[in-house]
Design a binder for these strands. Structure first.
Lengths: 253, 253
DNA sequence: CGCTTAGTTGAGAACTCTCAAATGACGTGG
DNA sequence: CCACGTCATTTGAGAGTTCTCAACTAAGCG
């Protein structure tokens, strides 16, 4: 597999033809962070048998929409997605972003129907895992059951953290937290944690953080003036992590 | 089992000696909404064997604290609890309330350690379900696995809905949503959906909704002046559901 | 090269917060 | 049983943060 420059990968994965990349979990560069986490070679093979690898989506394409039947969860293989609902007055409300190695679709498990819509932010590809097959396989592989529960538990933990963020952090704190969070998720999949190429608009970020797009833009400007980040359109460079972590409310001891 | 007046149950369950109530899931008045949901009689017996029934907590007692080892999840049998973390500056941040039939402890699954603390809001009792035993049993009872996944999925769905609430709703909308949500959860366990006896303070509600306690109080006053609710300290009566649902952003078609 | 979408910046308005004080509920001990 | 202290709630006034509206600039795409 070609070794893509991490600094450019986030926006540029569409230069890599998915067909030329891996087609099994066993060979996937992401298998340490993705669903196969903690499975041994033979179990990964079992998982591979139920996974449909690498469907590809163009920017703006929907993976699914609100009220679609829930059949599968999806692992992001390349590119990125946003999750959103429509609020009561018809406004779009972004409530999540998904990077490579992350699992999409948990919003459908409860009722057999998706409550969010998922849209590609750039050219992207996913691996589809039919949920009923995943359930059956989980009955046979205790480790898989355990890790899928842990995955959902992690989602819940993150959501609670986000609850705190929205209920008591200022615009600047939320924005710093967003950047730090994105940075660590990039690092996890071997992208540069210091140079982020945002796949989403200021409006998306604002909706996600409960801010207006103008405020989001102003806060980027403010952090820039403080010398903590460099902003060049969608390219954000994190220049001083310590103060950023402090603003974001992350313990740095 | 004595038929407690629903209107008084929420705050008054401590009048019912837990020892005189059920001691097995099979007999529990909550078994239709709680973990045994969708299990048949024989499966419930299997579940009963791993559940430790009815430990009792006084108001202010902790079920667990932040960073405690995760061993079990808990089903609320009577009374109510709040979940909170401490934010970076040491402030308490409430991020959940739990009523009878609801499951506490999912915040520990991801890392084997709880990220929240859980405190009783009134005299309360829980049934403890050791998680490793629940996992083992889930491997044997597909339905149990399925419903525990659904339970976690529901938590995720709720959290996303709450994300939207915090990121785009006004104080009044959030407060109305809170009341409507509490009302439907009370109804679920045969408490009156129209007359709520809040076990939590205005401060708790404010932290939960991302508002100051003063604002929470003012909004209660405002809804009262509009004739939508009656407020008598912790006792809130929902007088006009339609307008409340509308303010809360719930579809009423 | 022009159109459309995205991002920046400014000014005033609106909402919610903080600080402060007063009232009310509740539990304890005299 | 009452007095007291504590905690919870209400209410007011002013301050701050963020939003909305609007105009302008920049970037992407045919």
């Amino acid at each position: 597999m070609p070794n893509v420059n991490p600094r450019l990968t986030l926006l540029k994965t569409h230069n890599v033809n998915p067909r030329h990349t891996v087609i099994t979990c066993s060979d996937c560069r992401l298998n340490k962070f993705c669903l196969p986490i903690a499975l041994n070679e033979s179990k990964i093979k079992q998982l591979d048998e139920i996974v449909e690898h690498n469907s590809s989506y163009k920017k703006g394409d929907h993976l699914y929409k609100k009220n679609d039947n829930f059949k599968s969860v999806y692992a992001v293989h390349s590119g990125s997605f946003k999750s959103y609902t429509l609020s009561y007055n018809g406004n779009e409300q972004v409530n999540g972003f998904f990077l490579p190695g992350e699992i999409i679709g948990l919003d459908g498990i409860a009722n057999g129907m998706h409550v969010n819509a998922i849209q590609a932010l750039e050219h992207a590809s996913v691996c589809e895992i039919p949920f009923s097959k995943l359930e059956s396989l989980s009955l046979q592989i205790p480790n898989l059951q355990h890790h899928f529960l842990a995955l959902m538990g992690k989602e819940i933990t993150n959501d609670k953290e986000f609850h705190n963020l929205l209920s008591s952090y200022t615009a600047e704190e939320r924005t710093a937290h967003f950047l730090i969070n994105l940075s660590s998720r990039c690092e996890r999949v071997s992208l540069s944690p210091f140079r982020l190429l945002l796949p989403m608009t200021r409006g998306d970020i604002g909706e996600y953080l409960g801010l207006s797009l103008e405020t989001t833009s102003r806060i980027f400007g403010k952090l820039h003036r403080k010398g903590l980040i460099a902003v060049n359109n969608r390219e954000i460079e994190l220049l001083q992590m310590e103060p950023l972590l402090k603003i974001a409310g992350c313990e740095t001891e």
